[in-house]
């Protein structure tokens, strides 16, 4: 009798598990945060095999660290970009790795649409303001004029065969696209070895730039919050429901400092040499690549919504514009994906 009842329960349990399985409840999600590139890197993976997810998470974080340390850091002597900038004679054409060349070339191409407000060669000004090292200070007018002359991409030459040269004194800077590039790298790492082989979904966040891959455990789309410019670090005022994409936000609340009662943010307009004056307080861009979303969010902030919409169209990208009066504008492709969760913000049709 006892045996029989045991058997019955085993069978019923097996049936139940089988049926739960067909609803798809067996994936696991694992999330890990580490510090790399001077920012928080969070990797969240959904998949079937726990040990494999663990391995994939570590691989993504390591690939981001490697990218920064060996290629794109402007401040670490081990990085290729640092050495490129540190050459005695930068006007001499120097070969660089495919990875760096590709990043430089894509960044330069996007910033070419910025009407001179953003550039690959922006290091002279960002260093002067202390933005990369977070040792902020307001420079004098003369210093700014001198540094401004060393910014801009007209004198930066990226020739076909992977050679780079630029004017002496100029500093190439991938700071504004580094996090997006890291997202690209993380996604590439997953696609190469893990995605589709046990890993079914991933969200990679590198210092606020986000990449999504596959689908979450709970449905088809990921939910990504957009930081509330007037809230705390974890507060968001709206969410976007997205499939596979890359998201970046440029906002005045990041890396800002106050001197003599005036607040300065880190988004420098290279034509003035000062932080951009704008009624915008943040722009979030959704694009097909991490570098693109990063560069475009910076560009959109600097050039303003009207011009930004033209450039976004060129890259098939979408954006959410947030103004200082808490009105929100969104491009057509993201309208349905956006839900404003904080009632202090008003979504305005454009």
């Amino acid at each position: 009798m006892q045996k029989r009842i045991g058997f019955i329960f085993a069978l019923v349990t097996a049936l139940t598990l089988f049926l739960c399985g067909c609803v798809g409840a067996r994936t696991k999600t694992l999330s890990k945060t580490a510090v790399a590139m001077g920012s928080a890197v969070t990797v969240k993976l959904a998949g079937e095999d726990e040990t494999q997810i663990q391995e994939a998470v570590d691989a993504v974080i390591e690939s981001v660290q490697t990218l920064d340390g060996t290629v794109i850091s402007k401040n670490a002597p081990s990085a290729e970009l640092y050495r490129l900038n540190a050459r005695e004679n930068p006007e001499m054409k120097t070969p660089v790795s495919d990875e760096l060349y590709d990043a430089l070339q894509r960044t330069k191409a996007i910033y070419a649409h910025s009407e001179g407000k953003a550039a690959l060669a922006s290091g002279a000004l960002t260093t002067l303001w202390g933005i990369d090292t977070e040792a902020f200070r307001v420079p004098s007018q003369e210093e700014i004029e001198a540094a401004k002359a060393l910014c801009g991409d007209k004198t930066v030459e990226l020739s076909e065969k992977g050679f780079v040269s630029f004017r002496k004194g100029q500093i190439l800077n991938l700071g504004s696209v580094g996090k997006g590039l890291a997202c690209d790298k993380g996604v590439q790492t997953l696609k190469n070895a893990y995605f589709g082989k046990g890993v079914t979904g991933a969200v990679i966040s590198v210092g606020g730039s986000v990449a999504t891959l596959g689908s979450p455990e709970t449905g088809e789309r990921w939910t990504v919050g957009i930081r509330d410019p007037y809230g705390t670090a974890n507060a968001y005022f709206a969410t976007l429901r997205v499939g596979e994409t890359f998201l970046s936000t440029s906002g005045t609340y990041e890396k800002q400092f106050t001197e003599n009662g005036k607040t300065y943010h880190h988004l420098l307009d290279l034509t003035t040499g000062y932080p951009a004056e704008s009624t915008l307080c943040s722009v979030t861009v959704c694009a097909a690549g991490g570098l693109e979303s990063d560069a475009l969010s910076t560009l959109c902030f600097l050039v303003g919504e009207e011009r930004a919409r033209e450039v976004l169209e060129l890259y098939n990208a979408e954006a959410v514009f947030v103004y200082t009066d808490k009105t929100v504008h969104v491009t057509a492709g993201l309208r349905d994906a956006l839900t404003v969760t904080d009632t202090a913000y008003r979504l305005e049709a454009v």
Binding site: K44, S205, V210, P216, T223, V224, G225, N234, E254, T284
Partner: peptide, 13 residues
């Protein structure tokens, strides 16, 4: 529920 219940998967900032 719109807020609270479902935390987003990530926040972009």
């Amino acid at each position: 529920t719109a807020n609270g219940q479902s935390e987003p998967d990530a926040i972009t900032y």
